[in-house]
């Protein structure tokens, strides 16, 4: 089946089978390999992408369900060059080691802080509890997210 959708701001189409997940479609059909697949059963959060503004598990959504949707991946969060304030905060706080969970952390936090730029530390912890990181112990990830809130508050203010 052919699907048409918007990925990272660009109109794209892909030939998919019904059983292909959105995560596999992004990775293998659209060659956006920044979205990682860590469990394929909806627990680890590495495949998190943003669909129509909501963070979702890319392994629990079929590619055919993304027909007409606006999808944002970690590549779409990134600038042409350099790092966004959220990415910069991750680097500054050493909120990543092996980097495998990182794209899912970034997409989840981007969706959260876009909606809730004032999110409390407790709220951030609660939301990120759906993303497994095996390296960092999470403490620096929470610190980075708290740090990055300012830029989301700023951009909300700018709107």
């Amino acid at each position: 089946m052919k699907i048409e959708l918007e990925v990272n701001g660009a109109a794209v189409s892909a030939e998919v089978t019904p059983r292909m997940t959105l995560a596999d479609c992004l990775r293998h059909e659209l060659h956006l390999t920044g979205t990682h697949v860590g469990c394929e059963h909806g627990v680890c959060g590495a495949c998190t992408v943003i669909v129509n503004g909501d963070a979702v598990r890319g392994c629990l959504m079929l590619a055919v369900q993304a027909q007409g949707a606006k999808v944002t991946t970690v590549e779409g969060l990134s600038l042409e060059e350099g790092l966004t304030p959220l990415q910069q905060a991750f680097k500054h706080h050493h909120a990543l080691q092996c980097g495998f969970c990182t794209p899912g952390m970034l997409t989840t936090l981007h969706a959260l802080l876009t909606d809730e730029p004032e999110a409390s530390e407790e709220r951030i912890r609660d939301v990120i509890s759906g993303n497994i990181c095996r390296c960092t112990g999470y403490v620096p990830i929470i610190e980075a997210a708290m740090d990055a809130r300012a830029s989301y508050q700023q951009s909300r203010g700018d709107k």
């Binding site: 959060g45 998190t48 909501d54 963070a55 979702v56 598990r57 959504m61 959260l112 939301v127 759906g130």
Partner: peptide
């Protein structure tokens, strides 16, 4: 119920 991303779908 589950986690943030799951609650979105």
């Amino acid at each position: 119920v589950a986690h943030y991303q799951i609650r979105n779908r």
